[in-house]
Simulated assay, not measured.
Amino acid sequence: MEMLHLRYFVAVAEELNFSQAAKKLHMAASPLSQRIKDLEHELDQQLFNRSTHKVALTQAGEALLPLARDVLDRVSSIPWKVREAARPGRSTLFVGMPAGVHPALRERVKDLEERTRETAELKRWPGGTAELVADVRDGKLALALARLPVTDPALEVLPVMTERLGAAVPADLFPGRTSLTVADLTGLSYVADSADSTPVYFDELDGRLAAAGVKKRIKLSSSGYAGIAELVSTGIAFSISMLDPGSPMQLYRLDNVTILPLEDFEATLETGLVWRADRGGHGGDLEGLVSRAREVFADPLET
């Protein structure tokens, strides 16, 4: 049995959806399904009941899940425990930062850097939410700001900011408007970034838009927020973005792009600070850092 088999099993068990688990693991669903079958063959136990519309853990799968999580937690804790035992004095620790972090959150990260300067040097590390969460889970990052939800039971999550979202639309189609309804958007295509770059929350948002009547879609593979702004500016699409003028996402706004609130569609993006529970708890190597972080981020921000 390989460690990857257990990691694949836990991902499917948490998502109860092979496609979503494959996305989380950055792989295709077909090889993931085969790896699970290989594990079932080795254990001589069926781990999942599969049907067209539902995936559920069997009794054997429910028994394996806490064991697999414990093994993965123990293995992934080895690097930081070794570093903690070997490092002298002041250390360098990394804080994950996803794209578009609000300046107010950046100021709090800088405050945390100042408060920990005597014991550790904090460095910022960029990445997408899924990648940053995985790096925290694997002990490569001490902390990370991440777009919620984050459901990994090995991690603790402290909500730190809620940002209101609006529709980024072609300005010439809505002159003089200060708000929109979902019905105003049905003639446009909803454009989102690649699945690997988009927080999980936007998958849910996409489904809510479809249920509300927005049916047309444009999926981009790698052009990022700048590419989305280009499509919106041409007048054929809209996207969902932060309403706050102070958000760095506003820097991607081009001519003929405006961001307006939606009257009948509530949308907010939440950001949390995440860390490994065993590292931040009593006796963990990040206990002091997490204690200071709780002080710095004690009052969640809203825009």
Score class of each variant (00 low, 15 high):
residue 1 M to C: 06
residue 1 M to N: 06
residue 1 M to P: 02
residue 1 M to Y: 08
residue 2 E to D: 13
residue 3 M to A: 13
residue 3 M to W: 10
residue 4 L to M: 10
residue 4 L to D: 08
residue 4 L to S: 10
residue 4 L to C: 03
residue 6 L to Q: 02
residue 6 L to R: 03
residue 6 L to V: 02
residue 7 R to G: 04
residue 7 R to Y: 04
residue 8 Y to E: 08
residue 8 Y to K: 03
residue 9 F to A: 05
residue 9 F to P: 00
residue 9 F to C: 04
residue 10 V to I: 14
residue 11 A to D: 00
residue 11 A to G: 00
residue 11 A to T: 01
residue 11 A to C: 04
residue 12 V to F: 07
residue 12 V to A: 07
residue 13 A to F: 06
residue 14 E to C: 08
residue 15 E to T: 03
residue 15 E to V: 00
residue 16 L to M: 14
residue 17 N to C: 00
residue 18 F to N: 06
residue 18 F to I: 15
residue 18 F to H: 11
residue 18 F to E: 12
residue 18 F to R: 13
residue 19 S to E: 14
residue 19 S to C: 09
residue 19 S to K: 15
residue 20 Q to I: 12
residue 20 Q to T: 12
residue 20 Q to L: 15
residue 20 Q to G: 07
residue 20 Q to H: 14
residue 20 Q to C: 08
residue 21 A to V: 09
residue 21 A to G: 03
residue 22 A to T: 01
residue 23 K to W: 08
residue 24 K to D: 05
residue 25 L to D: 08
residue 25 L to H: 10
residue 25 L to W: 13
residue 25 L to A: 07
residue 26 H to M: 09
residue 26 H to K: 14
residue 26 H to G: 06
residue 26 H to Q: 12
residue 27 M to T: 08
residue 27 M to R: 09
residue 27 M to F: 06
residue 27 M to G: 01
residue 28 A to K: 15
residue 28 A to W: 07
residue 28 A to Y: 11
residue 28 A to E: 13
residue 29 A to G: 07
residue 30 S to I: 10
residue 30 S to C: 03
residue 32 L to M: 07
residue 32 L to T: 00
residue 32 L to I: 09
residue 33 S to N: 13
residue 33 S to E: 10
residue 33 S to H: 11
residue 34 Q to D: 11
residue 34 Q to F: 09
residue 34 Q to L: 14
residue 34 Q to H: 12
residue 34 Q to T: 13
residue 34 Q to I: 14
residue 34 Q to R: 14
residue 35 R to Q: 14
residue 35 R to L: 08
residue 36 I to G: 00
residue 36 I to T: 01
residue 36 I to D: 00
residue 37 K to V: 10
residue 38 D to P: 01
residue 38 D to V: 06
residue 38 D to R: 10
residue 39 L to P: 02
residue 39 L to K: 04
residue 40 E to N: 06
residue 40 E to C: 05
residue 40 E to D: 05
residue 41 H to M: 08
residue 41 H to E: 14
residue 41 H to R: 12
residue 41 H to A: 13
residue 42 E to F: 08
residue 42 E to I: 05
residue 42 E to V: 03
